[in-house]
Design a protein around this nucleic acid. Structure first.
Length: 486
DNA sequence: TTTTGAGTTGTTCGA
DNA sequence: GTCGAACAACTCAAA
């Protein structure tokens, strides 16, 4: 039998991997391959934090393939050319992969498919990343949904496929392995070692993903609804980077949550589980939108926002202050420093930090999206685009214009004991709770006692909240007037 | 086709 | 201190 190539992309796992499953079921040799093709991403080259994750995830995948007598072939270059070379050198008769949904990937996949078909190679694409693929879901007019609630209500009526179980046996190897470069030659790891906190925080790979899922189901799921908004707690699943790299599939998550309530026949098993599955739904919705409205990766879905009066930022000082966590608003700074340090930010704080950039500093959402893209280990074009456009108010189902997060109020409400701010902004940790979220309100003796010198050890607020809020509202009014005139 | 109801995550103001 | 209303208008989904 001729070998089957398995092209791994955003599906770096062995279990519940439809493409791998298919190839193994063919009975012939399989050749697992990963291609690093930066040019093929059309500008959305994997960011630095995600490259760190990718390195370790590829190592983990190679390990588990080797346990089954196989291995991962690594190549760098243009995917179309690389795959064709591999087909020729291995004598492969077919190739299998799991679909991607970003514009560049969809385009590339379709011409690779056409090209290989023409050369007599069978191509087998599968759904390995979503509960419901974006092209398979539509409203009653046959159009894509644009509002989450009806979208998700609709999806909940559709069946969810059970995960595939990979049998415990070796994969058949080709007579001769094609040449592979070393993992280090992909140059995914940082040249300067900024990844110390990353190592402490994460375990990339399928095993780490399953451990994370089990731990979350047993100790976090039930209270998820109440704890997920408190960034000082480990109240969220932290599965996002594992999902991003496909080390775990949403179908596996769905099945694991379903299993919790199985004895009682209840689904979802509790309120926390319902809220959690809703978040899985948001990921699905993000893919639905990005696939059906692919231009939103760069442009606002609501066109009038192309004319939003963004503020000037000569020299990029405001953007840099935001990026480095030096805005003077502790909850924002804590979030941005957590991001920089561990490649991840708590979701509640992402909303606060994003709102601050877009509404308080009035800098374009794309600047924030670009920064998140480079610094998040879970950077995902669909989720990132939806999140930023939602925050900016220019996307589907967007935040109303008047929803301008007040950073101090948010900090006091969701970090009441200050555990989060104190962890990530240590220079103000000695302030009492009353002033922790707004150091500029503290009397001089309180500041002195806490060793805080505003404008020196910690910045003064970069903007005044009340004034920034008024200016943002004025900007929205201006947009509305332009619209009326148009 | 027309109509009606609804829309993740908030803040501020004034009674 | 608490609570409800106002903050725009629009578009989408579905009956």
């Amino acid at each position: 039998m001729t070998p089957t190539l398995v092209w791994f992309r955003h599906d770096l796992r062995v279990q519940d991997n439809p493409a791998l499953h298919f190839a193994v079921a063919q009975g012939g040799p399989i050749v697992p391959v990963f291609v690093l093709d930066d040019a093929g991403e059309w500008g959305w080259v994997t960011g630095a934090a995600s490259r760190w994750w990718l390195h370790h995830s590829l190592a983990a995948l190679d390990d588990s393939l080797r346990e089954r007598g196989s291995r991962l072939v690594l190549v760098r270059g243009d995917a179309e050319k690389v795959l064709w070379d591999l087909v020729r050198t291995t004598g492969a008769g077919a190739i299998a992969w799991n679909r991607r949904y970003e514009l560049a990937a969809v385009a590339r996949d379709s011409w690779i498919e056409a090209d290989l078909n023409q050369r007599g190679i069978k191509v087998h694409p599968f759904n390995g990343s979503l509960l419901h693929e974006p092209h398979a879901v539509a409203n009653k007019q046959g159009r894509p949904f644009q509002i989450f609630s009806p979208y998700w209500r609709h999806c909940l009526t559709l069946p969810v496929v059970a995960p595939l179980k990979m049998a415990e046996r070796n994969f058949s190897a080709p007579a001769q392995w094609p040449s592979s470069i070393a993992l280090d030659d992909l140059e995914l790891r940082p040249r300067i070692p900024w990844d110390g906190e990353f190592r402490k925080s994460w375990h990339p790979g399928e095993i780490g993903a399953m451990q994370g899922l089990r731990q979350f189901i047993s100790s976090g799921l039930e209270a998820y609804g109440k704890n997920r908004d408190i960034p000082a707690l480990a109240g969220t699943s932290r599965l996002s980077p594992h999902l991003r790299f496909g080390e775990i599939s949403p179908r596996q998550i769905w099945a694991a949550v379903r299993a919790v309530g199985q004895a009682e026949g209840v689904f979802p098993p509790n309120q926390g589980a319902a809220v959690f599955l809703n978040e899985i739904g948001w990921r699905e919705f993000a893919y639905h939108l990005l696939f059906n409205f692919p231009h939103t990766q760069e442009l606002p879905l609501r066109e009038e926002f192309a004319r939003f009066p963004w503020a000037e930022d000569r020299g990029g000082h405001k953007l840099r202050a935001w990026q480095r966590g030096r805005t003077g608003y502790p909850i924002v700074d804590a979030g941005m420093r957590q991001l920089w340090s561990m490649g991840w930010m708590h979701n509640r704080v992402r909303m606060i930090a994003a709102s601050f950039l877009v509404k308080h500093l009035r800098l374009p959402w794309r600047a924030g999206a670009d920064w998140f893209w480079d610094t998040l280990v879970d950077a995902d074009l669909a989720n990132n685009t939806l999140g930023w456009q939602w925050s900016a108010g220019c996307g589907a189902d967007a935040a109303p214009y008047f929803r301008i997060f007040a950073p101090v109020t948010q900090g006091r409400r969701f970090d009441p004991d200050g555990g989060y701010v104190r962890r990530w902004v240590p220079e103000i940790a000695a302030l009492p709770d009353t002033y922790l979220q707004a150091p500029w309100e503290a009397p001089p003796d309180v500041l002195a006692k806490a060793g805080v010198r505003l404008g020196d050890t910690y910045p003064n607020p970069i903007v005044d909240h009340a004034r920034a809020r008024e200016e943002a509202l004025a900007a929205f009014r201006q947009l509305r007037q332009q619209r009326r005139l148009a």
